[in-house]
């Protein structure tokens, strides 16, 4: 549906986007995930028409939309701070886009009622924006961008300014609403959990490029680059000193790996605490426990290897954790080759 082709954006000579390629299918929710300054918001603003690309093309159903001004694109955009119009009521905010389309009053009223119902704000129509809570404002902002039936809905960190508990609940509702309406959506966030929960596919961005484009499960289980792994909180990266014939040499020992790479990721999900030393083939790492943190649902351990490498793993909350300084054996179930 939307094709982004080799998109470049410069701000005052400084490259912000350097060749972004991505396609968004009809009815898909694509999430742009990345740290601040990676270009994800800029990409969204270029798609919306609020910024101009210096190179590349934007195609909607095969037609270039670069020359179409922002107010004629017919897209919806929800801002991080919602940008609700403070001088208008809830209903007046929601109806604004419909008025711009020149819809008849009757149709507008009908649509406003419909959309407010969709976001669960029946009875809020005549409220003042200033008297709404954060969660209510978020819904109004969503309703406002949904009302004109946009061809594409864009959401720029729409949950960023809300507190964690509310965010967790709203992200699920948000996905449900988008899916119910059958919208194509692009969602920008720096929060991986939000991305996992809302996206059909995640485009992980770094320094103006897309680092990895995959389903949420793929991104989490198989980060392809060191940046992706670290950004997702997977820090067990071990440099490969030499690779030959399916065996990688590392500071932790020799590991069988089918493909050559600079780094190996020891995914915490595949690490368990010994002492299953019996299994002769398995790759194990010995080290001293340097940190034990109780997280609630689990313990997080840091195990310090003699080479200086530190591995993180989790053990169930029901288990009895080792004490600091205790010598333990970590069973490594799987290693993933990762580009640096």
């Amino acid at each position: 549906m939307l094709t982004i082709h080799d998109l470049h954006v410069d701000f005052a000579g400084k490259p912000v986007l350097r060749g972004v390629n991505v396609q968004v299918g009809a009815g898909e929710i694509l999430c742009l995930l990345g740290p601040s300054g990676c270009g994800k918001t800029t990409l969204l603003r270029v798609i919306a028409g609020l910024e101009q690309a210096s190179q590349g093309d934007l195609l909607l159903d095969g037609q270039s939309i670069q020359a179409i001004p922002v107010n004629q694109r017919g897209f919806g955009l929800m801002f991080q701070d919602f940008a609700l119009f403070p001088h208008l009521t809830v209903a007046q905010n929601v109806t604004f886009g419909l008025e711009m389309q020149g819809r008849a009053a009757e149709e507008r009223q009908q649509r406003v009622r419909e959309v407010l119902q969709l976001v669960d704000l029946d009875g809020f129509a005549d409220r003042d924006i200033a008297r709404l809570s954060g969660g209510e404002r978020q819904r109004v902002a969503l309703a406002r961008s949904l009302a004109p039936r946009p061809r594409l809905l864009m959401l720029d960190e729409p949950l960023g300014s809300l507190d964690a508990a509310l965010r967790e609940q709203l992200v699920i509702e948000l996905r449900a609403i988008i899916k119910r309406v059958g919208l194509t959506a692009i969602h920008v966030t720096h929060d991986q959990r939000e991305a996992y929960a809302i996206a059909d596919r995640i485009a992980l961005m770094n320094q103006g490029r897309i680092e990895q484009l995959d389903t949420p499960a793929q991104v989490y289980q198989h980060p392809r680059t060191a940046f992706a792994a670290r950004f997702l909180g997977l820090h067990n990266l071990v440099p490969v000193t030499r690779w030959r014939d399916g065996v990688a040499e590392t500071a932790l020992g020799r590991v069988p790996v089918s493909t050559k790479s600079d780094l190996l990721l020891l995914h915490p999900d595949h690490l368990t605490l010994g002492p299953s030393r019996s299994a002769g083939e398995a790759f194990t790492v010995e080290g001293k426990v340097s940190e034990v943190t109780f997280l609630g649902e689990a313990y997080r351990l840091k195990v310090h290897h003699a080479s200086g490498i530190e591995l993180q793993l989790r053990i169930p909350a029901a288990a009895i954790p080792p004490v600091l300084g205790q010598l333990v054996t970590v069973d490594v179930g799987q290693v993933l080759p990762v580009r640096s």
């Binding site: 609020l50 922002v70 107010n71 940008a83 609700l84 119009f85 604004f96 711009m100 004109p148």
Partner: peptide
């Protein structure tokens, strides 16, 4: 909030409507 004007433009307001309505 400068995003308010952008929101109005995304919602289809031209520059005249931007002055009078926002």
């Amino acid at each position: 909030n400068p995003r308010m004007e952008e929101a109005a433009r995304v919602l289809g307001a031209d520059s005249w409507q931007l002055w009078w309505r926002i």
